[in-house]
Design a protein around this nucleic acid. Structure first.
Length: 811
RNA sequence: GCGUGAAUGGCGGAAUGGUAGACGCAGUGGACUCAAAAUCCACCGGUUAGUAGCCGUGCGGGUUCAAGUCCCGCUUCGCGCACCA
């Protein structure tokens, strides 16, 4: 045979006809839920990133099947979202239509890749039978006070004409179109993810996740422990609450700063400062997000005329506003301690405000000094350490009702409203009599209408659809209007892994028992760009559903890994503008899917990725033809035959068993590259035996060859199926079991150990396995080159690591 | 700035603290061929006449009989967060 794409096609048809990869929930074996982050059908074909993510995991899935697991390995499509809508706007194709055709092509290509998915367990988030339950989820959160509406400044992308989540703003620009993002106030729906901040932190510990991902999440949640302190405003009955992690520096406060957007500003601004304050607020509000985030920008601000009273020193300090204080964090007010905070120091220096040192740390008197130390100039708190002072001062404040311990998080509630067409409608109704009313469950799904003008003009597209917007109030049955915003696509993807195992359920989002049995996902794979958003949202929703009694587990993904990324051959990220993209299709056509996927697995370290190289794929093609010719020769060996198992045969068996075991270990570490290299070593050994053994044990050789096909099967599903058939089998290789390892055959009887003198390699020594230590020592000391280096020196000690190394230490 | 990951031949990349460079690419020499391609065999970190030796895993220290691997201090690059009080 000559392997090529037509062989792929032949087997594909057969597998499809026989429904070879059908998942049987009652199947034998321990369950194994393997999941890759589902793909977004934004382009019409699979790109190299899809292949790189999915093909190796298909290999892993096949391997686990052969090992006897009942593998659940579903695939679906994250179909709602901006790119499809943008595509539609640009090309005049309705997102529903472009999505449907893209999904069709991608499914076919995933099959052509060799994917062992059971499409009976597939889902697409834009279909009614899926988003019905996304809406159900929204209502559940709403019922439990975890979804609420509020007016808030939001990130507004002028080009996409939509609100963006904080996570979708990259360096002040839209992460999709890269336009500069500005601020706008609208009424929006939020999910109260902040209620779960503490759980999201605590439960990270037990997860088998990359530590960098855990740290990203911790950083994103951003817990900080400190105190809240009340500053009374002079001559007014108003308290300014500030959050600080350094209450030990309280005596060093020389002014207080509010964010320009803070509600207190209007109340505290004195008349003769009003003009300047207004001008400042106006100026900062026109600053784009990107400008405001420039950390090295010079500090600006104005005094607003009022004074605050330091609760411990009773000193009056001026109140300023400045945009270096963020409205969205803490209370939006800050106590400024210029001596011990770099930002306050900069500000105070610029505006000539006093700087008072209250912490001493050794001889370091250079200000600003941000380290902790011992208190000075702090009344009765002098000589306390920062650590103790934080507690003492807060307790004292607490007694006077002027402060308390406080924990703050950077995590903000999840903004889920989108002023877009291509998403799930939010199942909420506005009634003049009843107010905000959740749509009733029996009316779900609230259907997304097809005929809608979705071109952006700053209004939600659904607002323009009369048939959509007008409805009956679920409560009073009077006329009412629907919510016109749609849900963030991250809501769709925050629970899809729960739907897969029970994807046809039309009574509920999922059956509790089925899901509790199948989840958590045993291995979840996807790009690390999702370390913060998708992976936090999915954890949050899982925890909510657990608390509401729908699930028995609180973490969705026990083990997580991130695949690396394939770069262009120039080492840069692939992009059309750089002209360095690699289109898989041309390679599949030329070589067949198996050669392509094997190259992807062999040429890179899976978790790292790296730059694409054309040469590698022809090398893989050469390996395939080496295998082909070996199997062709196998049937007409014309040499003296034997049935004995002598040293040469034993060596072959040893290599084989080592290979099988080695591949098992490699695959469990997702080391596809070394796993394939082990198949190569095995093939080299088979060829060596086939070419040179005299006499030759053909029966044994054929058995080993058959084992070879089995271990190749997960990597090259089409090619191995063809080899299997050519070797006279009429069932599928993919129904075979993974070969059993005979551990007794793994160790050679003879091993070669390293002989070192003072840690330097001086010789190698062949010994019988598990030779007595004394004998090994004797043999080692007798080696010519060892004698040379030990001669005339005192032997201090000899370290022997059995069957590995002997180190002779001399003086 | 804070956090985090990485650095190994000409290249992709291997190495539970135990013979650095598995496997492959590229390269060199040879066989086959009229010739080329393909295939096969050998070599393939540097230095050296060498099979003996010396040097060698970004840099400087340390722990250890033994360090690419562990510890301390740097450099460079990548990634994430970024005025979070």
């Amino acid at each position: 045979m000559k392997y090529n794409q037509s062989i792929d096609q032949k087997w594909l048809k057969k597998w499809r006809d026989e429904n070879l990869y059908a998942y049987n929930p009652k199947g034998k074996g321990e369950k194994f839920y393997l999941l890759e982050m589902f793909s977004y059908p934004s382009g019409s074909t699979l790109h190299i990133g899809h292949w790189y993510n999915y093909a190796p995991l298909d290999t892993y899935s096949r391997f686990k099947r052969m090992k006897g697991y009942n593998v659940f390995h579903p695939m679906g499509f994250d179909a709602f979202g901006l790119p499809a809508e943008n595509f539609a706007i640009q090309h005049g194709i309705h997102p529903h239509d472009s999505t449907a055709s893209n999904i069709k092509t991608m499914k076919l290509q995933l099959e052509e890749m060799g994917g062992d998915y059971d499409w009976n367990y597939s889902l697409e988030t834009h279909t009614e039978d899926y988003y019905k339950w996304t809406q159900w989820l929204f209502l559940k959160l709403y019922e439990n006070n975890l979804a609420y509406k509020k007016e808030a400044p939001v990130n507004w992308c002028p080009s996409c004409n939509t609100v963006l989540a904080n996570e979708q703003v990259k360096n002040g620009t839209c992460d999709r179109c890269e336009s500069v993002v500005s601020k706008k106030k609208i009424s929006q729906w939020f999910f109260k993810i902040t209620d779960y901040a503490e759980d999201l932190i605590n439960d990270l510990e037990d997860l088998d996740w990359p530590s960098s991902t855990k740290k990203t999440q911790l950083n994103w949640i951003g817990k900080s422990i400190g105190s809240e302190v009340s500053f009374k405003v002079k001559d007014q009955d108003i308290d300014i609450k500030v959050f600080t992690t350094r209450v030990d520096t309280l005596a060093g406060v020389t002014y207080v700063v509010l964010s320009p957007e803070n509600d207190l500003v209007s109340k505290l601004t004195k008349e003769n400062y009003q003009k300047e304050v207004d001008a400042y607020i106006k100026k900062t509000s026109t600053f784009s997000e990107i400008e405001r985030m420039e950390t090295d920008r010079e500090k600006t601000g104005v005094f607003i005329g009022s004074y605050a009273i330091n609760p411990i020193t009773k000193e009056e300090v001026p109140i300023w506003i400045s945009d270096y204080v963020l409205e969205g964090y803490g209370t939006g007010c800050v106590m400024a301690v210029p001596a011990h905070d770099t930002r306050d120091f900069e500000f105070a220096t610029k505006f000539g405000l006093p700087i008072r040192q209250v912490i001493k740390n050794g001889d370091n008197d250079v200000l600003p000094m941000t380290e902790q130390g011992t208190l000075i100039n702090s009344l009765g708190y002098n000589n306390l350490t920062s650590e103790v002072a934080k507690i003492t001062i807060t307790k004292d404040l607490e007694k006077d009702n002027k402060g308390q311990f406080m924990t703050n998080y950077r995590l903000k509630d999840w903004l889920v409203s989108r002023q877009r067409y291509w998403g799930s409608p939010i199942p909420i109704v506005y009634c003049d009599t009843c107010g905000i009313v959740p749509e009733s469950y029996e009316n779900l799904p609230v259907k997304l209408p097809y005929d809608v003008e979705f071109k952006p003009d700053g209004k939600s597209p659904l607002a323009k659809s009369e048939e959509f917007i007008n409805c009956a109030c679920p409560k009073c049955k009077g006329p009412a209007k629907r919510e016109v915003d749609t849900l963030d696509t991250f809501v769709c993807s925050s629970w899809y892994f729960l739907r897969y195992p029970d994807v046809h359920n039309d009574k509920e989002a999922f059956n509790k028992d089925i899901v509790n049995k199948m989840l958590p996902v045993d291995l979840y794979i996807g790009g690390n760009e999702h370390a913060a958003m998708h992976l936090i949202y999915a954890r949050f929703i899982t925890k909510v559903l657990k608390d509401l009694g729908y699930l028995s587990f609180s973490e969705p993904f026990s083990k997580l890994r991130h695949q690396g990324m394939i770069l262009g051959s120039d080492g840069n990220k692939m992009s059309k503008s750089k002209g360095n993209t690699v289109i898989p299709d041309q390679f599949i056509k030329e070589y067949g899917a198996d050669i392509f996927r094997c190259y992807l697995m062999f040429g890179f370290s899976y978790l790292e990725g790296g730059p694409w190289k054309d040469e590698g794929i022809s090398a893989m093609a050469r390996y395939f033809s080496r295998i082909e010719s070996f199997f062709e020769r196998l049937n007409d060996i014309d040499r003296e035959e034997t049935t004995k198992v002598n040293d040469t045969e034993k060596k072959l068996l040893t290599v084989m068993n080592k290979t099988v075991l080695g591949i098992e270990e490699d695959l469990d570490k997702l080391q596809f590259n070394t796993a394939i290299s082990k198949t190569m070593e095995f093939m080299n050994e088979l060829v060596r035996y086939e070419q040179f053994a005299e006499p030759i044990n053909i029966k044994l050789l054929k058995e080993c060859a058959s084992t070879f096909i089995k271990i190749l099967a997960p990597f090259a599903p089409f090619f191995s199926e063809e080899l299997w058939k050519d070797s006279g089998n009429d069932t599928s290789i993919h129904l075979e079991k993974w070969p059993k390892v005979d551990k007794s055959l793994i160790e050679d009887e003879q091993v070669e150990i390293a002989v070192q003198v003072n840690g330097k390699l001086r010789a190698t020594l062949p010994i019988n396995k598990d030779e007595k230590e004394a004998t090994v020592k004797e043999l080692a000391l007798d080696i010519e080159n060892v004698k040379l280096h030990t001669q005339g020196k005192e032997i201090v000690k000899i370290i022997y690591v059995a069957n590995k190394i002997i180190n002779i230490v001399v003086k």
